[in-house]
């Protein structure tokens, strides 16, 4: 059964490692290069998710409160 809900509970086995991997991927990049990397990463992950409904929920979740940042 495919998931039709965004997972908002812990789902990564080693969260510290994954977070460190995100930061490491940006090391030594300019702001412009980092922006490009982020955009590519989002596109790759969106394709991996493959479910437009989950993507929509993720976009709503990410957008919530962002204007107060």
């Amino acid at each position: 059964m495919p998931h039709h809900d965004l997972i908002l509970t812990p789902n990564l086995a080693t969260p510290d490692d994954s977070y460190a991997a995100l930061l490491a991927a940006h090391e030594g990049l300019s702001k412009e290069q980092s922006d490009a990397l982020n955009a590519r990463l989002i596109l790759i992950l969106a394709n991996q998710i493959g479910d437009p409904e989950i993507l929509k929920q993720a976009l709503v979740c990410a957008r919530t409160g962002v204007e107060d940042v």
Partner: peptide, 22 residues
Amino acid sequence: ISRVFRNAVLDLSEHHAFARPM
């Protein structure tokens, strides 16, 4: 930001089929 995404799609499309339909 729309230029950043656009360019990311184009760069990825060179090597990966998944980005070409975008």
